[in-house]
Design a protein around this nucleic acid. Sequence first.
DNA 1: CGAGTGGTTGAAATCCGTCAAGAATAGTGG
DNA 2: CCACTATTCTTGACGGATTTCAACCACTCG
Lengths: 254, 254
Amino acid sequence: MLSSSRWGLPPQSVPDEMSPLGALESCAAVIRCHAGQEIAREGGTTEYWYRVLSGAVRQCAVRPDGRRQIVDLILPGDWFGFTAPNGAFYPAEAIVEGTLLASYPRRRVQTLAEANGDVQRLMADVVFETVSRLRKQLLMLGRVTAAEKVGSFLLEISARLPNEHPDRLVLPISRYDIADYLAMSVETVSRSLTYLRQCGIIALSGARQVRIVDREALDEGRSADLPLGSVPAERLPRFHPSMEKNRAFGRVPS
Amino acid sequence: MLSSSRWGLPPQSVPDEMSPLGALESCAAVIRCHAGQEIAREGGTTEYWYRVLSGAVRQCAVRPDGRRQIVDLILPGDWFGFTAPNGAFYPAEAIVEGTLLASYPRRRVQTLAEANGDVQRLMADVVFETVSRLRKQLLMLGRVTAAEKVGSFLLEISARLPNEHPDRLVLPISRYDIADYLAMSVETVSRSLTYLRQCGIIALSGARQVRIVDREALDEGRSADLPLGSVPAERLPRFHPSMEKNRAFGRVPS
DNA sequence: CGAGTGGTTGAAATCCGTCAAGAATAGTGG
DNA sequence: CCACTATTCTTGACGGATTTCAACCACTCG
């Protein structure tokens, strides 16, 4: 499971500075994971920090009632494994077969960061990215309509997945995972996608291949103008009368 | 707005080690905020990291449709202000009148952390706490029923608020803020609370004073057994027939 | 082929958001 | 202290979106 080969950091994560990264590189080992395989945890605490090189990883929470929720979706370039001293531990599993991870010994990196300010700042930014990622997921979950949730999910994937063409994307996860990621039922995810397709906002070739036709319609949340049940014959108009319900969630209280 | 008085770290955040904290203390300034006041941002980027000493702070996102969502609720002892280099900025506002903040100059702390490994690890843990906090909010938003959301919110507040008696708590935020925090309407928040009260799971004295009667019922999510509309005459049984719908969100797919 | 997984669609029940109105509380100024 | 107002909170009614339950199709792999 633990291969000792070395691996370099991808250029996009740290564009200019290459000096401190060599030190980080030298302590990284590459792990190859099967689909569904849980990333090893050493006795409860995470002794490693990981970075996804290819594939996808999910961190799940299982409620007492048996439901599952994905609390983090980790794509190539993202780091994970940061846990608070007394925080809950959410097991990480590879989603895609052959997912490649770079594993960094936590203590080694911390020692490196103490000696090298560049490494310290790099790791700080990496954790801040995690915060930013979670906040985006919060915003997705907070959307009102199912179609809005799925729409913003597609945009998120499009932005985070290194595609040659940003409007053509291959979903790395199944409908079930999307459902657990957005906290909705699988059926509604499927319905939302066909709804977006029927609106002409996206195009589907196969289940996983998505083409974004009208990007603005996705992030403006205009996909909530019509209910899921209705089947519009043609594309939605750019501005819809029902968009006028611009009342705030809660006005500006306390 | 910016007072130059000094302020010590509270003992609960860092129990034992007191040596590196003196250095942190010495660069902290205390800010007193009015209710609704936005915490100063210096030209878009956050030049300061903050820690809440008393009161409460919210970080909001406003969607194009005018809705508001609270993407972080910061209570005494919590830090905030960590932003990724290219991440979105969410303005922070004090909620409670007279909220006290300790502000730490970002660059000064970074310099301190470079020189002192203890400061570095302390700050790392502080950011990990933020990650843990956001993940808990994700789990709250992911709950199915409105009563479950509000129930887990009460438990969260009870755990984070330094109360003498953990089952008696005073809500620091209004119904509107709760609604924007849990991404639901104000009316449903109110209805959920009265529902929990009628179930005998909580007791309300006034709008803000809550007493948790049956803690297990709250975190087991059993509060979702009955729909919001029905008014049960007595307490719910400990195990309810409808609890058998233990189907997972999505089974365990790839 | 049959089993299993993943995906889609239909029908029914229900939970929640919206609109509306009223009650309770706080804040203000006389 | 009281009237007056604004805000917060609660409750009702209604319509609609989503969940649930169920069936079906496509595909893969022994």
